[in-house]
Amino acid sequence: MIKLSKRLQTIADRVTAGARAADIGSDHALLPVYLVQTGKCPSAIAGELNDGPLQAAKRQIAEAGLAKAVAARKGNGLAVLEPGEADTVTIAGMGGSLMAEILETGRLAGKLEGVRELVLQPNVGEELVRRWLFEHGYVLQGEWLLEEDGKLYEVLRALREADSPTDVTNAEVYDPAFLPADMDAERKRCWLFRMGPYLLRQRAELLPEKWRQEHGKLKRIRAQLEQSELAESRGKEAQLREEMEAIEEVLSCLQTVKPSSSS
Rank of each mutant, 00 (worst) to 15 (best):
T90W: 02
Y138T: 12
G106P: 01
P122K: 06
G142D: 15
I102G: 02
L98Q: 12
T88Y: 03
L108T: 15
K68L: 06
A57M: 04
L133N: 08
A100N: 02
L35I: 02
Q55H: 14
A100G: 04
I102D: 06
R116H: 06
S43L: 01
E85I: 03
N76S: 15
L118Y: 06
G39P: 01
V70I: 14
N50M: 11
V119Y: 11
L133E: 06
A46G: 06
V124F: 11
I102H: 00
W132D: 05
H28W: 10
G39Q: 01
Y34K: 04
G106E: 14
A57C: 05
V33M: 04
K68D: 15
I61A: 05
Q60M: 13
L98V: 09
V139M: 07
K40E: 01
E113T: 14
Y34N: 02
H136Y: 14
Q121A: 14
H28P: 02
I102R: 05
G52C: 00
K58M: 13
K58S: 13
A46S: 14
L81Y: 10
G114F: 02
G52L: 11
A72Q: 08
V70T: 10
A79E: 15
Q55I: 09
P32R: 08
H136P: 00
A71Q: 15
Q121W: 10
G125I: 11
V119R: 12
V80E: 07
L31F: 12
R130T: 10
I102E: 03
K111G: 00
H28E: 07
A46P: 03
L133F: 08
D87Q: 14
A71W: 05
G84K: 10
N123H: 06
C41M: 04
Q60V: 04
G65Q: 12
G114P: 00
E126M: 11
E113D: 13
R73F: 06
A71V: 12
E135W: 08
K111Q: 08
G77C: 06
Y138L: 10
N76H: 13
A86K: 03
A71N: 01
A71L: 12
A72F: 03
A46H: 03
L140T: 09
P122Y: 06
E126H: 12
E101L: 14
N50H: 12
E117C: 09
G95F: 05
L118F: 06
K68F: 00
V36R: 02
L118V: 07
A62K: 15
V115Y: 06
P122F: 09
M99I: 09
L30P: 00
A64G: 07
A57H: 05
P83V: 08
R107I: 01
L120P: 14
N123T: 12
E48W: 07
H136S: 13
L35P: 06
